[in-house]
Amino acid sequence: METLLTVLVLTGIFVALVLAAYRASGPRCSPWPQRLPFLGGGEADTHAWQRYHVRFYTMTLVFIAFEMEMMFMYPWAVVFVEEGLKALAEMGMFLAILSLGILYGWREGIFRWQ
């Protein structure tokens, strides 16, 4: 009980200190002209809320495909000694599924260097 009280009191003191420092550190918001994006002196005509294409998404797909493979292979290498053929078949199935992802990526043209 005593420990809990100490923890609570200390937490309260630190929260109060942080809040006081926050309040003492001056105004929260920068003035409006300072918040504008830097365009070398120019101004935006359209609103910044917009959608654009994340063009690296296919690379992340390949990364996950290969990384997951390796993550499974380390423990598998240990078990393989005891299990033998059964473990080999399991790994074959797993790789077959992952290679579908790689084939899909190939079709999307992610291995082409641009």
Binding site: G41, H47, A48, R51
Partner: peptide, 26 residues
């Protein structure tokens, strides 16, 4: 300011939002 609206893409045909702004002189 108007929201950015989709327009045709020059690179791979994905039509996504176009953003117009004046850049320069600094």
């Amino acid at each position: 300011r108007p929201m950015a609206m989709t327009s045709d893409d020059l690179r791979d045909g994905l039509s996504l939002d176009a953003y117009t702004a004046t850049f320069g002189p600094y």
